[in-house]
Design a protein around this nucleic acid. Structure first.
Lengths: 138, 138
DNA sequence: TAATAAGTTTAGCCAAGGCTAAACTTTATG
DNA sequence: CATAAAGTTTAGCCTTGGCTAAACTTATTA
């Protein structure tokens, strides 16, 4: 019998709410990046970024607005609130640490990109700190 | 501007289908573990394991049966098919490598457990191989 | 500047994965 | 062994995050 599995219910409890936070984070990160590369963000930019329909983006932007992460008037540009900017920065920092860690570990850039996108929502502060240490030492 | 983000739609395209695969994997892993610890698996065991209702487990077991990962008759014990066993083994191997990697990196066991549960569905073969190498060298 | 093209939102649909309550089956007990 | 308790499934609901089609707004261009 393996000893590394938790069997503890509470690890799974928050699945639903965790997922919807992931979406919000992905969006603020995307908005932040698009702002930095092309200066403004509209529905169509996010469609391309995520490969989803305009309707889906529109719906999700509403969620972001409700969560006070984004500001936007109908048919107009999309902005991050200060709260949204802070979240984007935090996410970016996490992403950078993780990406650098993977490349230092020997993972090819292309794959490190994909893996860090996937993993970034599932890493604790503690693990991230260990990765930072590793990065500094290597 | 940061250079570690992909901006490529296709990384997000399969979100929906990926998520449902995650659920199937989590279930076969749970069933495998429960089998190994108490010898048989029923609805109630999975309720406790995941902290969800009996109705939810019942519904998800149907999905597993449809996916040919599980066999079960109404009100009876739950078994893994050979296909299900194979998937469970693969998942367990991934999980072990990841968990060992995190602990060798210096992450406390308790946290390594949680993080490896979260991350295991998002790690490529390549990254896993690098982790295996690291484990062997440390 | 009027008409067309491009972009955005709304309406209404779907599947996944949660839930509770009620019905049904199996197990345990007086 | 009949009944109560425990376990399982079904029915029906909800939210999230997708989609298409249609309506509406903004931008382009003849």
């Amino acid at each position: 019998m393996k000893t590394t599995r938790s069997s503890s219910p509470q690890l799974f409890k928050t699945t639903q709410s965790r997922k919807s936070i992931e979406l919000l984070e992905d969006y603020v990160e995307a908005i932040d990046e698009i702002l930095n590369t092309k200066g403004s963000v509209k529905n169509v930019d996010l469609c391309k970024y995520f490969g989803v329909s305009n309707a889906t983006v529109s719906k999700n932007i509403k969620r972001l607005i409700k969560a006070k992460l984004v500001e936007s008037e109908k048919y107009k540009n999309i902005f991050l609130t200060s709260h949204g900017k802070k979240l984007a920065e935090q996410s970016n920092t996490r992403h950078e640490i993780l990406f650098n860690f993977l490349t230092k570990l020997g993972v090819p850039r292309k794959i490190a990109e994909i893996d860090s996108e996937g993993m970034e929502h599932h890493i604790s502060k503690e693990t991230l700190n260990m990765m930072k240490k590793f990065n500094n030492a290597n």
